[in-house]
Nucleic acid binder design. Structure first.
Length: 253
DNA sequence: ATGTCACAGTCCCTGTGA
């Protein structure tokens, strides 16, 4: 079993990279963020021809999350269940695993109202994690827009006073972990930065100026079966890449 | 060091969000 998460920064603009990547990597389950599409334009048919069922919660210009699966996909829930909320979370059950594709708000700046929205959104995500069925394997994957520790940031001194590294944000990740979720990539790669995002600007990728903000949080049931977790840096190279690389994990059957 | 990208409206440039 291979599971991946990838913020594609527009599925329409990225299809020329995503479609061949799905063929090559052949993950069983993929959590996608920032599709930037409505359900009407989402490539359900194209995904079907390469073996994927899909569920999408789209908004149009911004946000948009999806789950792709070649091992079944049922019991889809879009969002937290509010009216007029942004399209930032979708859940489904695939091969008995409760899968959540998450796109945490950016926060913009510590003094920006969007930062409070980010913290509130993370608190609501923690309630979803607390209220889950603990007899069922669970994974919360996606773009968390938080670097959980200084190891996950190429230069913490540059990020002093910035979002993505503040203590309230890191506390929110710890609150999620306190529900029995494990930051799998970190557990399996202690001491390795494993960056997942590099700014398009200033040649950040080739300079190594990255952050690890795309996470796979898995429960103990899945963690016990995990054999590997890694970042596919190749997907960040080449023509018109997303600014995020995919994160993958492999599990024994 | 705002050295980039994608989207949509103001529509071939500009504002917004990342």
């Amino acid at each position: 079993m291979k599971i991946a998460t990838w913020n594609v920064n527009s599925l329409n603009a990225r299809w020329h990279r995503v479609e061949p990547w799905l063929r090559e990597q052949s993950p069983d389950i993929v959590m996608i963020q920032e599709t930037k599409q409505t359900d009407e334009t989402f490539p359900f048919v194209e995904l079907s021809t390469i073996g994927y069922e899909a569920a999408h919660y789209g908004q149009g210009r911004w946000n948009g999350v999806a789950i792709l699966s070649r091992v079944g996909l049922v019991d889809v829930v879009r969002g937290f269940g509010d009216d007029d909320e942004e399209a930032r979370i979708i859940a489904a059950t695939c091969a008995g695993i409760r899968v959540h594709s998450c796109y945490v708000p950016n926060g913009r700046a510590l003094e920006d109202p969007h930062y409070q929205y980010k913290l509130e959104w993370l608190a609501r995500l923690a309630h979803v994690a607390e209220d889950r069925d603990f007899s069922q394997p669970a994974i919360f994957g996606g773009d968390f827009n938080v670097a959980p520790s200084d190891l996950d940031c190429y230069d913490p001194s540059i990020f002093e006073g910035a979002t993505h590294v503040s203590e309230p944000e890191r506390d929110a990740i710890r609150t999620l972990e306190a529900t029995g979720l494990i930051d799998l990539t970190r557990r399996l790669n202690p001491g390795e930065p494993c960056f997942t995002w590099w700014d398009y600007r200033r040649g950040s990728f080739h300079r190594g100026w990255g952050l690890r903000i795309d996470l796979l949080l898995v429960d103990e049931l899945l963690s016990a079966k995990a054999t590997a977790s890694y970042v596919d840096r190749e997907a960040r190279k080449g023509e018109k890449p997303s600014d995020h690389a995919p994160v993958l994990a492999e599990f024994a059957d």
